[in-house]
Design a binder for these strands. Sequence first.
DNA 1: TTCATTTATTGAACTTGTTCAATGTTTTGA
DNA 2: TCAAAACATTGAACAAGTTCAATAAATGAA
Lengths: 192, 192
Amino acid sequence: MTELLIQNILNHITLSKKEIDSFCNLFDQKEVQKKHFLLREGQICKFEGFVTKGLFRVYNIDNNGFEQVLYFAQENWWITDIDSFTNETPSQLYIQALEESEVLLISKKDKELAYDNIPKIEKLFRVMTQKTHISLQRRMIDNLSKTADQRYIDFIEKYPNLFQRLTNVQIAAYLGISHEFLSKIRRKIASK
Amino acid sequence: MTELLIQNILNHITLSKKEIDSFCNLFDQKEVQKKHFLLREGQICKFEGFVTKGLFRVYNIDNNGFEQVLYFAQENWWITDIDSFTNETPSQLYIQALEESEVLLISKKDKELAYDNIPKIEKLFRVMTQKTHISLQRRMIDNLSKTADQRYIDFIEKYPNLFQRLTNVQIAAYLGISHEFLSKIRRKIASK
DNA sequence: TTCATTTATTGAACTTGTTCAATGTTTTGA
DNA sequence: TCAAAACATTGAACAAGTTCAATAAATGAA
């Protein structure tokens, strides 16, 4: 199912049929079982992926064994550890399927091939990286300026769909709080 | 002084003399007095800047009037509100000189001109945006997983130079804590 | 120089969020 | 279908970080 991928690309830039085909052919489809990993800490992230089905979490495990979610990726989202992928260094992150999932994967070599052969691909990833950076910038500001209560309310409003599909443990790991405290926030909100 | 800019660009990609010249000519130099602003909340950020002298802070003011620093930019750093610049929407941020400073500014129009006329410029900003995104991703993980003590120690180690030039009020606003609490952290560290 | 402003420190009371342990519920996999 | 595992909630004690007010030191502008 590259139809979703094509739509996603055309959403960012315009490409000819030929260009689209030759780019999309660089991707391999992969099915990932629930709870299975696309990436583990210590591995070098050798792919960039586009989710066509299911849901992933990209997370860190800190020195005390607690997990922090960098982001969730559902259908139509891109997924990678850009740090490890770009610098070819061991990743600090885990990427795990939270549901039965499917991704289209492109290797670093093929991606660089595309940069060289299809000039607009450079623009595509320039624009996409800008957008993800803008999102992260907004999240950074929110994390610095808002209380956990407000971040939780914002999360539900911004990602109503993810809210349905995630457990509170996962949402708490994204908000940067313990799941017990999230439970208390939920009670407080519910009692209003 | 575009020499610093040229070095910065060549650090990311290779360009011919001609390409460098025609790109660098798109920048205008501007001097910014200490405490003066390059951007204020509500304005649309119409520039991307390269700092050749001095030091800036890019910060948010939240609903309670507290300031949070998104990043500092000293010599050899790029500076903009990428959100406002890209989407041409009113900025939520302030950009202020903390010292007598100088920047080279490029407008959105001229930057897009460069994208069209100098193909490698697309790669330049793709690579640069990737790098800033990687930095922010690391900071996000650190903010989610580390205590204020550790973030302060990391800051000193990572930016010894900025540490010298900044007040504790500014550093606290970057770490996301009150300056009083930073003072208590400093005492604790000093007493060891 | 001097006076005002900004910066840094401190303590006490307070708020936000964590930790731990217990309990009940839901989901899942064999 | 049934036992195990994961999930959600709660309370109590605790730790991390804030707020406010007071004081002293450093800086800056006239």
